[in-house]
Write a protein that binds this DNA or RNA. Sequence first.
DNA 1: GCCTAACCTGACGATCGGTTCAGGTTTTCA
DNA 2: TGAAAACCTGAACCGATCGTCAGGTTAGGC
Lengths: 208, 208
Amino acid sequence: MPGERIPATARGEATRRKLLDAAEAEFGGKGFHGASVSSITTRADIGQGTFYLYFRSKEEIFSVLVRELGHALRSHLAQDVAGAGRNRMQVERRGIEGFLQFTLEHPGVYRIVQEAQFVDEGAFRDYYLQLAQRYTAALEDSAKRGELAKGSAEERAWAMMGISHFLGLRHSLWSGALPAKKKLDEVMDFIANGMAPRPTGTSSGRKK
Amino acid sequence: MPGERIPATARGEATRRKLLDAAEAEFGGKGFHGASVSSITTRADIGQGTFYLYFRSKEEIFSVLVRELGHALRSHLAQDVAGAGRNRMQVERRGIEGFLQFTLEHPGVYRIVQEAQFVDEGAFRDYYLQLAQRYTAALEDSAKRGELAKGSAEERAWAMMGISHFLGLRHSLWSGALPAKKKLDEVMDFIANGMAPRPTGTSSGRKK
DNA sequence: GCCTAACCTGACGATCGGTTCAGGTTTTCA
DNA sequence: TGAAAACCTGAACCGATCGTCAGGTTAGGC
């Protein structure tokens, strides 16, 4: 039979770790097809064959990586958001900033996740489904506390993910910098108040 | 020198067309790397070598295709939106529905465009930049007519694109159907009014 | 009718990278 | 200490496919 897939017991764990780290750098830099198993093993300073002791194939290590990254992002976001317990809009802003920061610092991660759409669709879906689930739950909590207008938490969660997704593209990836505060203000205003013409009066009461 | 790249003059044009159509089906179904030039030519019912009379490489036909598809989507949207000149929110809804319809009918197109991110980043960027530009201009027009609250047209355009992007993923691609009217209502409410708690009173005046 | 330009063909050369395998090295623990 | 278990190695196999090329076919104007 071919190479099995043994979780390790000692230094093997370290080797596996090195492979995953090298794979992140490789896939992030060259994409799934541009990356080669031999580059990964070279980068990890490990023999070619060792690779197949821990992963059945190039696809498999990629999938494992995507799941790991999803977990990492969720942890990162949870922490960013934890500190800012004031009103919900503040939390949302923190979340967006945290996401943008994360993709600015790990542009490869963004790439890997997007490419997962074509390499392991299941992992890709799970990545977003889990994110959406957490987000939805958080919004439902806030709603219970009366911090939000009435409306579907789920749809809002996905909408927010979409907004953040493109902010990440434009700023973290294409410009290599976080958006100007002014721009983020505009986005936050849209999130808070939408774009329908306000019924009457001067502005609407958002902003400090 | 190797194969040149001649736009045609007669039946050559038809051959080129067949190649592009076949490529759309191939790339849409199997992705860039899964597709092979020989599959494309076979599907187009054309000799292998003929391919290189019209395209320098697999990458090139892919790029050409992405640009074409961008054009096609923009035309499609322009038409959908043209009919619905009532208030701006109605236009927005039409735009979203048109987009979802388009990706439902051409799931391959969505895939191709997303994959362009890794095959021809320039084409990918242009695709979204052009879309955003049109969208922004349309919103600015509406704003001038007083159909919108104050706010950045550009940021709104990108936000809308993000929202639509994920709606397309979830519904057109993952579920293979348009979203239920109720869900779209929720999304439209978010777009119109945001999610900040309403200052006072009963609801807010949206809805019939 | 025929001659040239444009178009088409498909087998083949060359390359590349994932995966395997036969055997070597290190670690553990009795 | 010694032997089994776990781990590691990298050259070579192998299937796939991109792009080429020498020559055949079609179209249309003189």
